[in-house]
Amino acid sequence: MNVKEMEKQCTIIRRDIINMLADAGSGHPGGSLSVVEIMVALYYGKMRTNSQNPKDPNRDLFLLSKGHAAPCQYAILGEMGYFDKAEFKNFRQLHSILQGHPDTKKCPGVEASTGSLGQGISIATGMALGAKTAKKDTQVYTILGDGECQEGQVWEASMFAANYKLDNLTVFLDHNGLQIDGTNDEVMSLGDIHAKFASFGYEVFEVDGHDIQAILDAVNTPVSGKPKMIIAKTVKGKGVSFMENQVNWHGAAPNEEQRAQALKELEV
């Protein structure tokens, strides 16, 4: 897909997200909508994937450390054919392959079970270490939430990734500035997050997290001997006017009226 096509795909993914959440009656729209361009760029514009053989040994690996944005991952996996899109309506329902947070035992294309914050980045780091140890050229990508950076484990993993020079690991920070209880600064300031990640040993990039070309440019910039951190400035709830930058849309599903309104704004 070229960038234009990926931009169009983002709208399709956003529509899937809204429908999934409205059907489920619960879930996390804000953070699912803020990572759409990052994930579309990775899945459609960068990673080696194989929806017909999700365990293809030559695939690259993606892990959603901020697992509550699962609807975005499910939308992409479904659109790519990892499973039947009819599964979307079962999101968060009993016996569904689409659990509230990604479950590798249930959902094809989900590489590990994430969502307990701080653990996904460590697991991704372990995958990157494993690929290097096995002398494979596998690339590993993960997305952190900004609130997630309050977890100490994020920094344990970061120290580890730099120590072992894991230049096959790319970490995105979905930096939308909001978390459940308020803004990052109201809850627990991240301080100078760029400087913090740089001092932990990442090559740090900053991009507009809704600019697919900028995301791909950062992803494609070669870095050797250290892991890559791409701080993506994003808008929580991006694409749906009444959800944008609204903290109360972190973990609330749209009702029917709101669904209709959102879908109207997301015409393909």
């Binding site: 690996l61 590489e111 590990a112 653990q119 460590s122 697991i123 991704a124 780091t125 372990g126 995958m127 990157a128 270490l129 494993g130 690929a131 140890t133 096995a134 494979k136 596998t138 484990q153 993993a157 580890f160």
Partner: peptide, 11 residues
Amino acid sequence: SIAAGLSTQGF
């Protein structure tokens, strides 16, 4: 968690 990641790579 690192061990978990390593296990996915066949170790």
